[in-house]
């Protein structure tokens, strides 16, 4: 079965370092997938390859999104296929208010007249209505994470790429986030990169483990997290 997102022999080298090594990956419609792995495993590089943030050609393999070969496309062109992206460090517009951040995102999808309505809806959904007039730079790390998730959600993407969405959030915020992710997952496919094993366990999705630029193992969360090979490369490394 062909996936909504596929990579074929995806490879990315930086000089002599192979950051992503022949990765064949497939994500199905409405699937929730977590990518885990120790630091330097190649998760973020893989993420950036999917988004065209590195210059690529077919020598680097192929990236297919809903059948479109997007290898070599610009980031904005790939995103316009209906992809929402949350980066590892909150990528927000710090000098603008929360409302302005959300509006800029909303405007491209919902038009000049529909943008504000969509902003209000997402603010209500994420319970950040009281933050709307605050400048984003003044907010806490966790609040900025929520704002960035709002920026992503307001575009109503069918594929979400979330890089460490729960980092810096309080317990309550994480629980709310899991609820939101599950709700979105009813209509959208989601890839989550995260280090927090408890968070990954709570999501209970299929997990792909990266190690030295390649996929080490894939499978249900409980099975993968108890896999001795995974414990060796990931949990073992962290324990040290």
């Amino acid at each position: 079965m062909s996936g909504v997102l596929e990579t074929h022999d995806l490879t990315m080298r930086f000089g002599g370092v192979v950051a992503v090594n022949n990765v064949n990956f497939s994500l199905q419609e409405s699937e929730l997938r977590c990518l885990i792995g120790p630091n330097g495993a190649g998760k973020s590089t893989f993420f950036k390859c999917l988004l065209g943030q590195y210059r690529m050609n077919h020598e680097n393999g192929r990236v297919l999104i809903r059948g479109n070969d997007v290898t070599g496309w610009n980031t904005f062109e790939i995103v316009r296929l209906g992809i929402g992206v949350k980066t590892q460090v909150p990528s927000v517009m710090n000098g603008l208010t929360v409302q302005e951040n959300l509006w800029l995102s909303s405007r491209r999808i919902h038009g000049w007249h529909g943008a504000s309505g969509a902003v209000a809806e997402v603010a209500r959904e994420l319970q950040i209505e009281d933050l709307l007039r605050r400048t984003v730079g003044e907010l806490s790390h966790g609040q900025r994470q929520v704002v960035e998730i709002g920026i992503v959600l307001v575009q109503r993407p069918w594929l979400l790429l979330l890089d460490e969405p729960a980092a810096g959030m309080t317990g309550d915020e994480v629980e709310r986030l899991i609820g939101i992710i599950r709700r979105i997952n009813q209509t959208a496919s989601i890839i989550i990169v995260d280090h927090d094993m408890e968070f990954v366990r709570m999501l209970g999705s299929t997990v792909t483990v990266f190690h030295q630029g390649s996929i080490l193992v894939e499978g249900p969360a409980e099975q993968v997290l108890n896999d001795p090979a995974v414990r060796e490369v990931y949990i073992g490394n962290r324990a040290e």
């Binding site: 988004l51 610009n74 980031t75 904005f76 995103v79 316009r80 992206v85 980066t87 990528s91 927000v92 517009m93 710090n94 000098g95 603008l96 302005e100 509006w103 800029l104 995102s105 405007r107 491209r108 920026i151 575009q155």
Partner: peptide, 21 residues
């Protein structure tokens, strides 16, 4: 103009929103 201000604040984010920066 609003997108320009967004670009001033965070070019990467504007690109990730689908704007041709």
């Amino acid at each position: 103009g609003r997108v320009l201000i967004g670009i001033r604040e965070n070019e990467e984010r504007c690109e990730l929103l689908g704007y041709n920066v």
